[in-house]
């Protein structure tokens, strides 16, 4: 067993085990932490494949942003997952049935797999070895796939505009800090002198 395959079994084993723990853990916060562990090990698998850019993106995007967001949501929403899971067993027969049907379908599809004649040629272009992953991706992303890249950008823009259109409200009566008004306050505007008569108060 080479070092690479030893690491493969290490990463793969931990990834599967932590993925299982994601759905088995009682505490949702623990689930998210196991999810992060699963992401790290998947990143390790990418490294073994020589896809170091994807590995880093997986850690940065999924661990750094998505999983942390999950963690915040889980903590803020205070969902009682133990309650949700009650009666889990009563869905087991129907869930199991669906699972078996999907398994049978998968076996049927994989069993009758026929590779198109042009498919091997399409995947023959392996990752170039003399340049880094990021450079190889960049070379096709901004040339061959320029249209797709720009369109994805437009789609994200629409999503952003849409979220603002549908949710942003300017509420009346909310007091906001107005720095210009604060700075422009003069003694005359902010201060008034009263002559208080003794024994009467204001």
């Amino acid at each position: 067993m080479t070092l690479a395959s030893a690491f493969f079994y290490l990463f793969a084993g931990i990834a599967v085990a932590s993925a299982f723990m994601v759905i088995a853990a009682k505490n949702p916060v623990h689930s998210v932490l196991y999810l992060i562990l699963a992401f790290f090990n998947a990143a390790g698998l990418f490294l073994l494949l020589g896809a170091e850019f994807l590995a880093m993106i997986l850690v940065v995007v999924y661990v750094g942003a998505v999983a942390v967001l999950f963690l915040f949501v889980v903590m803020m929403l205070d969902v009682d997952f133990a309650e949700l899971r009650e009666g889990f067993l009563q869905y087991l027969p129907i869930g199991g049935l669906v699972g078996i049907i999907v398994l049978v379908e998968l076996v049927l599809v994989v069993g009758s797999w026929a590779v198109a004649p042009s498919a091997p040629q399409a995947i023959a272009e392996r990752t170039p070895t003399d340049i880094t992953n990021a450079e190889a991706l960049g070379r096709v992303l901004y040339t061959d796939y320029l249209l797709f890249f720009q369109l994805s950008g437009l789609i994200l823009l629409v999503a952003m505009i849409g979220a603002i259109v549908l949710t942003l409200r300017h509420k009346e009566g909310v007091k906001r800090q107005n720095i210009a008004a604060q700075v422009a306050r003069t003694k005359a505007a902010g201060l008034s002198l009263h002559d208080v008569k003794p024994g009467q108060g204001l």
Partner: peptide, 15 residues
């Protein structure tokens, strides 16, 4: 291109 065009179109329509 087909899928991206569809999504750009539909996402704006949903809003």
């Amino acid at each position: 291109a087909l899928y991206l065009g569809f999504e750009l179109q539909s996402l704006a329509l949903y809003v």
